[in-house]
Simulated assay, not measured.
Amino acid sequence: MITVLLVDDHPVVRDGLRGMLDAEPDLEVVGEAGSGPEAVVLARTLRPDVVLMDLRMPGGDGATATGRIRAEVRTAHVVVLTTYDTDADILRAVDAGAAGYLLKDASRAELTAAVRAASRGETVLAPSVAGRLVQQVRRPAGPQLSARELEVLTLVGQGLTNAEIGARLHISEATVKTHLLRTFTKLDVSDRTAAVTTAMARGLL
C-alpha cells in the first residue's frame, strides 16, 4: 500500500484528490494539510510514501515545506501539484527536492501513475514542465552578476528597502541603487520584482 499526504489550502481540492486516490486499491490517503508548516508536522508524524504538495498557500509555501520534508523524512517523495508552471516556481520546487511537478489539469490516470512512480523514487514531470526545464538548461548563461549584486538582490527578495539594504551591507543608498541598476541591465528587466523573479528562474538565487 502506498501512503499519501495531501497538502492544499482548498478543502474541496483535497476532497477531490482523496476521492480519486482512495478509489485505487494500492493507494491510501493517510492525512491532509492546509499549509506548508502543517504539512511538515504531519509528514514527520505520518511518514507517508508520497506527499502531493500545492505550491502557493497562506501561512507557508510549498517549496519551503518540500525542502524541510526532504530533509527530515528522507523516505517521503514530494510531488508538486499546482496550477502554476512559471520557471521560478518550477526551479524552486526542483531545487527543494521535489520528485515531480504536475499541473492540476492532469487526468486521474496521470495523477495516480505519478504517485506510483514517485513512490518508486522516479521523477515525474508534466510535459510542459519538462519542456521548460530543458529550455533552462539550454539557455545561455548571459552576463553574470557580481557577488555584491547577488547580495543586494537577495536582500531585495527579502523585502528590504534600498536604505535598509545599505545599512545591512554598510554601503550608501546610492551605491545600492547603482548595484540594482547594473543588475536590471544584466537581467534585462526594469524593476525589482522582475529582477528577483528572473534571477530565481535562472537559478541565481
Score class of each variant (00 low, 15 high):
124 V>H: 00
91 L>R: 12
120 R>F: 01
107 S>D: 13
127 P>D: 14
113 A>Q: 12
129 V>G: 07
120 R>N: 10
86 T>Y: 06
103 L>P: 00
76 A>H: 09
103 L>T: 11
138 R>F: 12
97 G>H: 08
91 L>C: 04
83 T>N: 07
116 R>T: 13
86 T>D: 15
143 P>F: 06
118 A>M: 07
107 S>T: 15
133 L>Q: 08
77 H>Y: 04
99 A>D: 05
96 A>Y: 04
82 T>D: 09
91 L>Y: 11
77 H>E: 10
83 T>W: 08
104 K>H: 08
112 T>D: 00
106 A>M: 09
76 A>S: 15
145 L>K: 00
104 K>Q: 12
135 Q>T: 15
90 I>S: 06
138 R>P: 03
96 A>W: 07
98 A>E: 03
86 T>Q: 13
139 R>Y: 09
80 V>F: 06
147 A>N: 05
137 V>W: 02
105 D>S: 08
101 Y>S: 10
95 D>I: 11
147 A>E: 15
95 D>H: 13
83 T>Q: 12
138 R>H: 07
137 V>A: 13
126 A>D: 15
129 V>H: 03
87 D>G: 01
114 A>G: 08
94 V>H: 06
78 V>I: 10
145 L>V: 02
140 P>E: 14
136 Q>G: 07
119 S>K: 06
79 V>N: 05
75 T>C: 10
143 P>R: 15
128 S>K: 12
141 A>R: 14
126 A>H: 14
88 A>S: 15
130 A>C: 05
143 P>E: 15
73 V>W: 09
98 A>Y: 03
76 A>L: 08
137 V>R: 09
87 D>V: 00
120 R>A: 14
86 T>P: 00
119 S>H: 09
73 V>C: 11
96 A>T: 07
97 G>I: 02
93 A>R: 05
84 Y>N: 03
111 L>V: 08
107 S>R: 10
76 A>W: 12
102 L>P: 01
106 A>H: 01
140 P>D: 13
137 V>M: 14
86 T>G: 13
148 R>K: 14
147 A>T: 10
111 L>F: 04
95 D>S: 13
86 T>S: 15
